[in-house]
Every structure is written in C-alpha cells, then in structure tokens.
C-alpha cells in the first residue's frame, strides 16, 4: 500500500501509533501501583478534617467510586481518559484539566530555560575544554563540571538561597512572581525572570555538567577521526575544522542524551519547584502524592508521558536533520 503522503508525515503517524500502547501501559501500570499504596483520597481528606465517623467515610468513598473493585475503577478511569476527561480533583475542587493547565506553563518555562542553558553552555564549555585538552583552562572547566555533577540540586538550591536571598538579598526566595507587585508588561517579565534565576540555575547546573563532559569526550574523539585529518590536509584552519567538521559530528551523542534526559529533568523539577515554592507540575505532583489526589496525579503522569513521547519524537527529527546518514523510515 502506498500512501500519497510525504515520508515525514508517514513517519510521524507511525510514531503516533507506536506511542498509544506505550501511554496506555504507563497509565495502567501507574494506576495499579498507586492503588497498591496504603490510604486513599478519603483517608487524606478525613485526616485533614481531623477525623470523621465511619458512616460518613463510607458515603464519601461511595460518592468518589472508591468502594468499587480496582479493575472497575481502572476501567472507568481509562474509558474517561480515552475521551481526554481527566476527572475531578477532590483536593482542589476543580477539574484536573484546569489544575494542570494552570501549572503547565511554569514547569515548561523552567524546563525549557534550564535545558537550553545547560545545553548551550555545556557544549560550548565542553568544546573549549576539548580543544585545549589537559591545559589549565581544561582543568578549571572539568573540575567545575565535576563539582556541579556531584552537588545534589536540593543542596545547591539551599546554598544559593542562603547566599543570594538571605545574605545578599539580591534575589527573591521563592514563588514565581511578587505577590503584591501586580506588575504588568515588561515589569512582569523581569519580575518572573528574577524569580526563575535560582531555580533555573539549580536545575540546569547538573545537566550542564553532563553535557560538558560528554561534549568534551565527543569532540576529542571526533577530532582524531580520519575526515578531520583529511580536512587538515586540505589546508583548512583550526576554526574551520571546528565549525564544519567537528562540531556537527560531535553533537550527535549529546543530542541523544538530551532526548533521554528530558524525562529526568521533569523528575528534577519536583525537588526544585518544591524548594522554591514554584506553582508548577513538580510541586503539584508532590502535593498530590501527599494528599492521595489520585486523579490529579494520574493527570500529571499522563501529561508527562505525552511530553516525553513528543520530545523523543522531536529529538529523532533533530537527529535525522543533523546526521545525513539517518533516514526516517
């Protein structure tokens, strides 16, 4: 069968089809895992209220459908999910979709800035270190990379807070904007940016060191390859070698890592958002676990798996663009 479509569209369709079972499996798996954990939404709600009688608890369970067997609950949830209905958050008293939508922007902003900073600075420093391998510059960069690599992000966050907010008072301690500021226009942008400086740094430094180390190794490897020697034998200058022959080939493994790590950045944002009290998906996930807000948590997981699938797809596209040997079929 020949479809009269450009190959890229066929490729995208195929990837989409492949993603569906993956996401369904993730959703079923996490649903069952969460059900295995002791306690449910009602326990958490009643706990917040300071206790209630058994009748009330049973009625609440019935109302939320929690008295049904697990497979019925799963079936009900999955059929609703099939129509993109995420259900109702009993903690926030809002549809889950609304809760998620409110938080998504912050997290995406945080992730996008952190990753792009980590990526650009990481590869730049890595390339510089590789070109001056074993020199003082390289040693300084590599040691810094090792320090960032070894520092847990929560510790880094707390130390930055202590230094820049408590001691120096340069940056706000947490939140996404100054609550009583009511800034508009550029003032608002600057305000948000000031709030994001420390979280971004905390989240990106560890990834920066990943990319730095990988890029350094990759550039050193590519610089020894035959075609670089060929180019040198043509009389090309060092900067020309770097730009045209080394960089693009050395970037490939780093791009692979970028795609793979996107999901771990989501995980890292839980810690950072919680510490800096940013209203994002990460802190929401943490709250939802504590409060057994099943629907919200499942919603977050659904959203995250979609983000990861999309990012992997984009990584593959980027990879195919950068590496002419790879054809999307």
């Amino acid at each position: 069968m020949r479809l009269p479509l450009p190959p890229i569209v066929i490729y995208a369709l195929r990837r989409l089809l492949q993603a569906v079972p993956v996401i369904i499996l993730i959703m079923i798996g996490t649903f069952l895992l969460l059900k295995l954990a002791p306690g449910d939404t009602v326990d958490a709600l009643v706990g917040d209220m300071g206790g209630a009688d058994a009748d009330f608890i049973a009625r609440l369970r019935q109302e939320y459908g929690l008295d049904q067997p697990v497979y019925v609950q799963l079936w009900v949830y999955m059929t609703k999910l099939a129509t993109f209905d995420f259900g109702w958050s009993f903690v926030y008293e809002q549809p889950v979709a609304t809760v998620l939508w409110d938080r998504l922007g912050t997290t995406l902003l945080l992730m996008a800035t952190s990753l792009s900073l980590a990526f650009t600075i990481g590869i730049a420093l890595g390339a510089i270190a590789a070109r001056r391998a074993y020199s003082l510059t390289d040693n300084v960069i590599s040691t810094l990379g090792l320090v960032f690599y070894a520092t847990p992000s929560f510790f880094l966050s707390l130390m930055m807070m202590l230094l820049f907010s408590v001691k120096l008072g340069w940056l706000p301690v947490g939140g996404i904007k100054t609550i009583a500021g009511f800034y508009t226009g550029w003032d608002h942008v600057v305000d948000v940016a000031r709030h994001l400086v420390m979280p971004t740094a905390a989240l990106s430094l560890i990834y920066l060191s990943f990319y730095l180390r990988l890029m350094r190794a990759s550039v050193m490897e590519v610089a020894d390859l035959d075609y670089v020697r060929t180019a040198r034998a043509k009389g090309a200058s060092e900067s020309r070698l770097m730009i045209h022959h080394i960089m693009r080939n050395a970037l490939l493994p780093v791009i692979t890592l970028l795609g793979l790590q996107f999901s771990t950045v989501l995980g890292g944002s839980v810690v950072v958002e919680t510490i800096f009290t940013l209203p994002g998906l990460g802190s929401l996930a943490y709250q939802s676990v504590v409060q057994r807000d099943m629907n919200t948590l499942m919603g977050i997981i659904f959203l995250c798996s979609i983000i990861v699938v999309v990012v992997n797809f984009l990584t593959d596209l980027l990879y195919a663009r950068l590496d002419s040997r790879i054809e999307l079929t």
């Binding site: 060929t230 034998a233 045209h244 022959h245």
Partner: peptide, 26 residues
C-alpha cells in the same frame, strides 16, 4: 604558510575511503 601549501601544493589520499570523508557533508 603550511596551510597554503597543504592541499594546493601537496595533497593526500588516505587509506579508508569510508572514514576519510566527513559523513555529514555532501
């Protein structure tokens, strides 16, 4: 001065035609 000589005055052919050309450029 060497850069001007390499390629123009003295050129090289290498062993591995597989790896001696940059895979990312036409």
């Amino acid at each position: 001065q060497m850069k001007a000589i390499r390629g123009k005055e003295i050129s090289m052919i290498f062993q591995e035609p597989m790896t001696a050309l940059n895979p990312q450029k036409t």
